[in-house]
């Protein structure tokens, strides 16, 4: 087996085994940390599909996290305090369906426009659309506006209870594994070959007869829907949501996770989120000015580490 495969298996096993061990040894805090890590990793994996494999530098991906989280928060709010009955529910299936559906729809509507543009226009316009959703939620006083919304009750699912930290973690972990396998399957499929081909040379693919716009749009929608699901999990984890979760700097952090770990690789986004979350945790416990070394580190990585952590693991000879 290749070295990257070994590392992937090792990291995923560690993520499966460590949190229960933490819990049994009385370090519940680390289970929380791991849950956040795994949920953000799902978002990073979804972003990697379009950023890494599709070459679409989306700077508005946190919007889907927000949409997903509010897709849990708003139905719970209505069910608890009354309001629009059609949207009122504690049911997890309904929440997930709403999160994925609305995210896919938002990705479709904005993707139709964003994907007509290229390069730096695409970066800026995805950022602007992300910010549009951010301001939309800020303007909605009913759901707390700027101050955010407390989710009183977590999504109700059959067999498991999300109130149990370990069960919530297990759900998130399984979702991450499924997300990784999904992206892996997609990029290796014929669809994925077209997507990657268009990343490398769009004109060539068009000349071959591919309507690359439709392939990109499809990937864009899949990615948005997947990230919306991560958002629904995050809402259930934090039980508090605010527009801050989807500001543009959150999108920037997601991008950084992908690049840090290594874009267009299976494990890269997971590794990137892990290092990101751990760094954040360690640095912020040392100083309130932790963004300073963090920003310097980010710049250093962009300048000096090509191919991210997976690039380092792969080494030179291994293909």
């Amino acid at each position: 087996m290749k070295r990257t495969t070994w590392v992937t298996v090792f990291v995923m096993l560690a993520l499966a085994i460590l949190p229960p061990v933490f819990l049994w040894t009385g370090n519940a805090f680390y289970v929380d940390l791991a849950t956040r890590l795994v949920i953000l990793a799902i978002a990073a994996v979804s972003l990697n599909l379009i950023l890494g494999f599709g070459g679409m530098v989306s700077f508005g991906h946190a919007a889907y996290i927000g949409i997903g989280a509010y897709a849990v928060g708003i139905p719970v709010y209505y069910e608890t305090y009354g309001g629009i009955d059609a949207l009122a529910s504690y049911g997890g299936a309904f929440h997930i369906l709403l999160a994925v559906g609305v995210s896919a729809l938002f990705a479709l509507l904005t993707g139709v426009i964003c994907l007509r543009t290229k390069g730096v226009y695409f970066i800026m316009i995805t950022m602007a659309f992300g910010q549009m959703i951010y301001y939309l939620f800020i303007s909605m006083e009913e759901f707390g506006g700027d101050d955010g919304l407390v989710i009183d009750i977590r999504s109700e699912l059959p067999l498991v209870s999300l109130d149990n930290p370990l069960q919530l973690y297990a759900i998130a972990y399984i979702a991450l594994v499924i997300a990784m396998l999904m992206v892996r399957t997609i990029v290796n499929s014929r669809f994925g070959m077209v997507l990657q081909g268009a990343r490398g040379n769009d004109e060539r693919l068009v000349t071959l007869g591919y309507n690359t716009y439709l392939y990109r749009l499809t990937a864009y929608v899949i990615s948005g829907a997947m990230c919306g699901f991560a958002g629904a999990l995050l809402g259930n984890f934090t039980t508090f949501i605010s527009p801050d979760m989807m500001g543009w700097s959150r999108s920037g952090e997601l991008m950084f996770m992908v690049i840090l770990g290594g874009s267009a690789t299976t494990l890269g986004p997971v590794l990137g989120s892990a290092v990101f979350i751990l760094m954040e945790e360690v640095l912020s416990s040392i100083t309130i000015y932790w963004h300073l070394p963090f920003g310097l580190m980010l710049m250093g990585i962009v300048l000096f580490v090509r191919g991210g952590l997976m690039g380092l693991i792969k080494g030179k000879g291994d293909k």
Binding site: N188, S189, R190, G192, Q196, G200, N201, L208, T218
Partner: peptide, 30 residues
């Protein structure tokens, strides 16, 4: 005009694939 970051075979396979109609096929590894 080639896809430089793909293998030689993948480049040609993309052309074969293009001939066989649309490529909205997500499951089998190409």
């Amino acid at each position: 005009s080639l896809v430089m970051d793909m293998s030689v075979l993948d480049n040609v396979a993309l052309a074969v694939q293009a001939r066989q109609g649309h490529s909205f096929r997500f499951l089998r590894p190409a």
